[in-house]
Design a protein around this nucleic acid. Structure first.
Lengths: 341, 341
DNA sequence: TTCATCAATGCACACGTGTGCATAAGGAGA
DNA sequence: TCTCCTTATGCACACGTGTGCATTGATGAA
């Protein structure tokens, strides 16, 4: 059994109250007693029980993070940002992966409520609004990353996907592309819709047509699905001269699919990604993509949540409930001038 | 404020003890009272406080996981395995990333002790023995993944890196390679030593020389470091005909470096990875690597820890304290017959 | 009817920490 | 010396849940 302040009190010949005060607010205890208590605590290897403290103070100093998959490198970098802010604020993280499974989601939400997590950050692109409402009804401050279902939540941080996707599209148009296709991930709900929107807007602005069958969705974001979808696009007539992919993972798969189908990138077809995950710089050819400020997004999300927790202690903050971050276009080797039509 | 069993008790007209019993061990309460209490709890949206329960029962139902980096895809898959086992056993995870930083490590260890995590799984390849001892001295059951410093811990799960590395080396030798180099990650301590050992053993067995400058270490596992190291290997005379990389991430960088240096893979030089992360199948050419059973490793580690926790309630288990898992060689496109010498 | 048995419930305390209030000691001012 | 104020410390209760023990009421056996 771990040692407690009572053990220290006994050894120091004082009451446990004095120990508690000495280790927290040393204003109410004589400096020599405080020093003696500190020494004894150090010597006995005392570690305060966060459990007991949480029960008494009603604050756990823990933030919950719900993510769809831990092994997704995109979320990994966001998590790094979240952790940085949380740690700076003295908070720890309770991380759980929903794996796109509603049953798991339910368990996660319940666990977080039972653990008395002080607030929750949702990074899962496919988080059901129902469970979100359950969190809110329980009085949890919730911050949503990438504004999935942001209408049902109060606060969200997100990247301007519409703008990013437009920039990518305009880049392709400026190279001379006219027949551009879009490969989406149907599991990503709003995010893929926004990226599709940015693409369509830019195309409309340039008075270019997008045939219905140029927009194709697969269920998931694994590279394998990207590779398979090349067969679909290759069969279209006329064939598109460029494919805008929902994210880098799909794009990496598409590059492989093109290689297997004998399509040269970018001579025969241009390919773009989104997110700028580490590996996008190491594909062959290296991938033109849109650099989302992943670390900053995580950082800002955690900071916003911390501010909300502060605000609950009285002051209502005068802060915007939605924060939009901008990224920037990275032109690399996978896009080029389209071949002869 | 969240509702408690006292609120339910008041509403049901019974004592809080009865409510507590009704929701836990319904053996000591009449079935109709139990049903009524359950209904009221449901209606009021009651969620038991894990904090209070932990304080009373001295069990938090939480496992701590220390990882060097969350965004590393290798650890991501191990985490998935850990989570699967933990969830099956009714445990939640407390995850923290050390980022190879001793100060962070210290904070993490202290936080886990304060949170009264029931046990700890260490997945960080560069975890300092000092902090490990601190955990052990506090009575924490500790399971180590990939046997970093396993001599100071009692239990560990690891992959047979020596065997894997030997298999890769023999594969290259069987293709006709005689001049093989090794690229290590000095931050990975024992793991890189084992993989180097397997390589050297297989070379010795085939009576092949390994010049001293054929073994090169970089500080870290990012692809960029792999790309840069190609310059080093390209300058050697005679130049190696194959590079065995510590892991896939470095190998992916090496492939890029070769491309930039005009070296064709595998015609001019063969490259191998280790771990079989998702992207290794999507490089150009696809990467020959060794498939470590990452998910199983995580699963087994968590299960072992759960068994240890069970055992603490009396029975000392008759189980091996070290478990070795085997992986298998994946031959893909990045290895081939060496060009003319 | 009386007593033993058993099921159902309440009472009271415990877990480790924090804190309002009372108390004790000491010093300053009259 | 007495009063007032400050400083240091202890007492006792609280947080939400779990549990040993006592209590109550009912049932069955003699």
């Amino acid at each position: 059994m771990a040692i407690t302040i009572k053990d220290i009190a006994k050894r120091a010949g004082v009451s446990h109250s004095t120990v508690s005060r000495a280790l927290r607010v040393n204003r109410l205890v004589s400096s020599e007693t405080a020093r003696r208590i500190h020494d004894i605590a150090q010597e006995m290897g005392y570690r305060p029980s966060a459990v007991a403290r949480s029960l008494k103070t009603n604050r756990t100093q823990v933030l919950g993070v719900i993510v769809s998959s831990i092994s997704d490198p995109f979320f990994g970098e966001i998590l790094n940002g979240i952790e940085a802010s949380a740690q700076a604020g003295g908070y720890s993280l309770f991380i759980a992966a929903s794996q796109h499974d509603p049953i798991k989601e339910r368990q996660i939400v319940q666990t977080m409520m039972e653990q008395r997590t002080e607030g929750v950050i949702i990074c899962s692109s496919s988080f059901s609004p129902e469970h979100g409402r359950q969190l809110l009804s329980y009085g949890f401050p919730v911050v949503v990353v990438n504004h999935q279902g942001s209408e049902s939540f109060n606060y969200s941080i997100y990247h301007d996907d519409i703008d990013g996707s437009s920039q990518i599209t305009r880049h392709l148009i400026s190279l001379g592309h006219k027949r551009i296709a879009y490969l989406g991930n149907s599991q990503s709900g709003r995010t893929t819709q926004d990226r599709l929107r940015g693409f369509l807007d830019a195309m409309a602005e340039a008075h270019l047509e997008v045939p219905e069958n140029y927009v194709h969705h697969v269920e998931g974001g694994e590279p394998l699905l990207g590779a398979e979808s090349v067969r679909y696009f290759a069969r279209l007539t006329p064939r598109p001269t460029a494919i805008i992919c929902f994210n880098d993972m799909l794009a990496i798969g598409v590059l492989k699919g093109c290689e297997q189908s004998g399509l040269r990138v970018p001579e025969d077809i241009s390919v773009t990604g989104f997110d700028n995950i580490t590996y996008s710089a190491f594909t062959t050819p290296s991938l033109t993509t849109f650099d989302q400020p992943k670390f900053s997004i995580g950082q800002e999300a955690a900071q916003l949540l911390l501010d909300l927790l502060q605000a609950e202690d009285g002051i209502i903050p005068d802060m915007p409930n939605v924060k939009v971050l901008k990224g920037k276009l990275l032109v690399r080797g996978s896009t080029g001038i389209p071949g002869e039509v």
